[in-house]
Simulated assay, not measured.
Amino acid sequence: MTTLEPDCARCVGLCCVALPFRPSSGFSFAKDAGEPCRHLDAAYRCSIHATLRESGMGGCVSYECFGAGQQVSQVVYAGRSWRDCADGGAEMFSVFSVVQRLHEMLVLLDQAGVLAPGPEVSQLRRRVEARTSGDPAFILDTDLDRLAALVGELLRGVSRSVRGDGPSYAGHDLVGQDLRATDLARADLRSALLVAADLRETVLDRTDLLGADLRDADLSGADLSTALFVTQPQLNAAHGDAATVLPPGLRRPHSWPAAG
């Protein structure tokens, strides 16, 4: 089965080259797609990995490839590097972009399979996973929009079956709001803007957080153990502490304070 957790030691720094970024709260300088980050060393490692946030590169901390890096590096390209490619890695970077999206779909489908096991979820998962290997042309021919639509519709159905008639804040602008007194159990917060929202000690019981923007949201002491469709980048971008309860399978970000 495809591994969906990043293993940077088995990658050739694809995210550090393939992705563009611009100066913002997450990056301290600009870089074009296909241009190696100035901090990428000869061994495909980040030379400032231990001090990314302090160096103004918090966007790198939040980013997650869902294991696409090693899948492309080791499986699709059999250990070859973009540095050895005649096109400078352009094809490899495009493949990486596709596989990253497919792996994110797989992460969400795995969550759906736990919540509502059945043939529909497993069949769609096999269909998505089948596009993550093979030759580059096969992967690049993937109809991502079609697969994303199918996955999205399935996840909506699972969410409705689990949440019932919970309140909907889908797509709402909740930036900076104090939500500690708001009952968010079974709520639909899909694609809600929760940037810098105060969610301390809230109980997000069966709360759908698919695509919610949790940048700088305070999750200290919050219980997300049964929250729906939370992904690692959302947690990486938020603030939490040792008392924050995470959904199964997700990692506590290194930037969060440890138990004192």
Rank of each mutant, 00 (worst) to 15 (best):
A237K: 08
V76Y: 13
L246G: 00
A242M: 04
G79M: 11
A148R: 00
F229R: 07
A137H: 11
G56Y: 08
A149C: 02
N236L: 13
R45A: 02
E129H: 10
G13E: 06
M57F: 15
M57N: 12
A242D: 11
D213A: 14
P20R: 14
T3W: 12
S191N: 13
Q71A: 15
L150Y: 09
A258D: 11
A170H: 00
A185G: 09
R22E: 12
T51Y: 14
S55M: 02
F29N: 02
A238I: 08
A42L: 15
D32N: 11
A137Y: 08
A43E: 03
G152D: 09
A90P: 04
H172A: 07
F29R: 04
S24W: 06
K31Q: 13
A243P: 00
L189D: 01
P36E: 12
D218Q: 08
R101P: 03
Q123S: 14
T2C: 13
C11W: 01
T207S: 10
R22Y: 07
L204E: 09
L155C: 05
R146D: 11
G176K: 04
S122T: 12
Q111A: 08
D241E: 14
V195M: 06
R53Q: 04
D213S: 11
R206Q: 12
V121F: 12
E104P: 00
G171Q: 05
V95Q: 07
A181Q: 15
V121K: 09
C15L: 09
A68G: 02
G59N: 00
L194F: 14
D135H: 06
C16R: 02
L228H: 04
E54Q: 15
Q100F: 02
D205P: 08
T182S: 13
A18H: 03
A116K: 11
F138W: 15
Q177C: 10
M92L: 13
L179S: 11
A237W: 09
P36F: 13
D173E: 10
M92R: 14
A137N: 07
D178T: 06
S25D: 15
P36I: 10
C85R: 15
P257M: 15
A9C: 08
L246M: 05
P247F: 09
R80V: 01
G69L: 10
G240K: 07
L174Q: 02
G113C: 06
E91P: 01
V75S: 10
L224W: 04
I139S: 03
D223C: 01
S161V: 05
W82T: 06
R10D: 14
A217Q: 08
A237Y: 09
G171H: 05
A259E: 12
S97G: 07
L140I: 12
G113Q: 03
G118T: 01
R101W: 05
D205K: 15
D218K: 05
G166S: 01
S55A: 11
S161M: 13
A42D: 15
A217I: 05
E153M: 13
F93R: 03
P253K: 08
G221S: 04
